[in-house]
């Protein structure tokens, strides 16, 4: 049976959605493993990374096939351009989840709760979860308004990240023995901040796909 462009696009759309769900789940598991020092769960995240990579390659190949066979234009072209970038950003998010999980496997004990609280780690993660929910709805329902919501939320992450250096420094001064933990937490916060940037990129791509508007590098309210 000949698969027409619309059917092929729908298949790609489904793969994109699967990638989105998988990467969100990877990040959630990595966070849980990090906070609770659950090395089994961390191992699961590391092992699942292979599935993420396989899906990444599958989407990449299907995009290439779509471009070669269907010569997409207009909304089809924007979709294919967007899905490639979204896929790339999601794969990077999954890489960060894997990186966080590796800390858990390599370290002997959990990061002090007080340290997590001081750095507003939970707020940071809740914000990321909410941003993920926004782009999931935006992607699924082609809802540009929902996509735009992440821009404001990303600023929350940037703020926490900016303050983290001084806070970590202060915590280390209080108790030098936590230096190792503090440095790991600092690194994880940096990763979370990058995840926020990647989600923002995804939101920009969704807007481009639906409205043909390039919002990249523009000041957002």
């Amino acid at each position: 049976m000949v698969v027409n462009a619309e059917q092929q696009r729908e298949v790609l759309n489904q793969y994109g959605f699967e990638m989105l769900s998988l990467c969100q789940s990877q990040l959630e598991k990595a966070k849980y493993a990090f906070v609770n020092h659950d090395s089994d769960l961390a191992e699961e995240v590391i092992n699942t990374e292979k599935r993420v990579n396989a899906l990444d390659l599958k989407i990449e190949k299907d995009c290439e096939k779509f471009l070669a066979l269907y010569n997409p234009v207009a909304i089809d072209l924007r979709f294919i351009m967007a899905i490639r970038k979204i896929n790339f950003d999601l794969e990077r998010i999954a890489d960060h989840a894997e990186g966080i999980s590796r800390y858990v496997v390599e370290e002997n004990k959990a990061v002090e709760l007080s340290l997590l609280e001081a750095l507003k780690f939970e707020t940071m993660f809740e914000t990321i979860t909410s941003m993920f929910e926004n782009i999931t709805v935006a992607y699924d329902e082609k809802d540009v308004k929902m996509a735009r919501k992440v821009f404001k939320k990303d600023k929350v992450l940037d703020k926490i990240n900016r303050k983290s250096f001084k806070l970590i420094e202060a915590e280390i001064r209080k108790n030098v023995e936590i230096t190792g933990q503090a440095l790991i937490l600092f690194s994880v916060i940096k990763k979370m901040e990058r995840v926020g940037d990647l989600i923002k990129n995804i939101a920009e791509e969704i807007i481009f796909y639906i409205e043909a508007e390039v919002v990249k590098h523009k000041k957002k309210k």
Binding site: N4, A5, Y70, A212
Partner: peptide, 17 residues
């Protein structure tokens, strides 16, 4: 026309719908 046509009919035609 080929990146962002104004009319839905145009888009449907050029995308082969």
């Amino acid at each position: 026309i080929f990146t962002n046509p104004e009319k839905k009919q145009t888009e449907n035609y050029i995308t082969g719908r």
